[in-house]
Design a protein around this nucleic acid. Structure first.
Lengths: 213, 213
DNA sequence: GTTAGCATGTAAGGAGTTACATGATTTT
DNA sequence: AAAATCATGTAACTCCTTACATGCTAAC
């Protein structure tokens, strides 16, 4: 029984499903994709990768020397056979069969875990690998979750148990506004998804392992 | 040399400066004031209060029995003197002189620590206890911080090292939009603060311990 | 009379950070 | 030759949560 978060696991499996990567590059992509909201450090990533290897979800392939080192080597063909590491070694990770399976299971989950704050952004970022039905359910679940929050929020403001000062109120007001905008954003996305679904009566929901190597 | 976060410390000192409170009530106020962004649990709050007592920033005053228990007791005046706890005991906390001093120091800080993500919301929520000059500097600092982030963000999108898919891009786009709105919000606040400053050549920057006991 | 809310606390653990350690390669 | 960037990893620590333990009081 795994615990709730596992954001990193999902993100790593999702990125490695697009193409094998080494840790350093993986981190950059991670922080690019999850843009600005999250930024994982190496101290988080490397141990996590280790764990995924241990659990058999990913595996390492021997590192190819970086292109420039290879180029430099090309001039001295007599020594290329030596097993001496050229440049800094790079440990490249890729999904195992188990990892692919695990990723499909995670991406198929359209339950609460998918739309809570912790996970929603990762799940959304991986919508390109998620089937249309699941996308729609996750978006709707997220929307419901946010409107519930808005309601609780508004209620606590209109029935104030203790008065808040001017600035504290303004902070709440702005927070509310931002959540309202997320709801609006979701509305747009939901109708786009619905439009797609009706345009082609059956949207492509195959596993697309490679669309552009 | 204290470390960077200390959000809880600041929030607790700020709230207790308005009025003494017991832990349970304090937590509710905390989560009301910092509305929806943060929600501290008891497992965080109580040990933190303990620490503040140890450091001499707050102190406990003996708990008054809850109003209803007092009312019930009023019918049997013969026993009110007994030190037996009436109702569940409530440990009420209030600032010490050291705590007030510490709070003033924290609230006077208009450096980077005040406008980073971690701290900005708490500092803003306590603007009612912050002098006008500091408010302005913190708002401006925050604005600069966000525009820096926007620039880095836009650059990484326009010079893409690796292509992001449709959904990952949309996530980034929306995140950018939300940050832009925060900048716009800050602009409004900043001009309001400037308006205030010129309206009354010297804004009230005394410590207001009680405006409404 | 039982559920919900008030009230205080502790123990174990999860998730992530910073700082450190190491070293190659590229750029200035 | 120095600085930046690439690249991998570990150790210590922080902050916070969940789950537990306890018990009173109000409302249904």
């Amino acid at each position: 029984m795994r615990s709730r978060s596992d954001v990193l696991e999902t993100a790593v499996l999702g990125l490695l499903n697009e193409s094998p990567l080494h840790g350093y590059e993986l981190r950059k992509r991670l922080n690019l994709v999850l843009g600005s909201f999250r930024a994982f450090s190496y101290g988080t990533l490397y141990p996590a990768l280790k764990g995924l290897v241990t659990r058999g979800l990913i595996e390492t392939t021997e590192s190819a020397p970086p292109p420039s080192a290879r180029k430099a080597k090309a001039g001295i063909p007599g020594r290329t056979a030596k097993p001496k590491p050229l440049g800094r070694r790079r440990v490249v990770y890729q999904l195992t069969a188990g990892g692919k399976e695990r990723l499909q299971t995670v991406l198929a989950n359209a339950g609460p875990a998918a739309w809570e704050d912790d996970n929603f952004d990762v799940r959304f970022a991986l919508f390109g690998q998620t089937d249309a039905e699941t996308r729609l359910r996750v978006l709707e679940g997220r929307r419901t979750r946010l409107t519930e929050r808005l309601e609780a929020f508004r209620e606590s403001t209109t029935h104030p148990r203790s008065r808040l000062d001017e600035y504290a109120l303004e902070l709440r007001r702005f927070g509310l506004e931002q959540v309202e905008r997320e709801v609006h954003w979701l509305d747009t996305l939901i109708s786009t998804e619905r439009g797609r679904a009706t345009a082609q009566s059956r949207p492509p929901q195959q596993e697309q392992t490679k669309e552009r190597g």
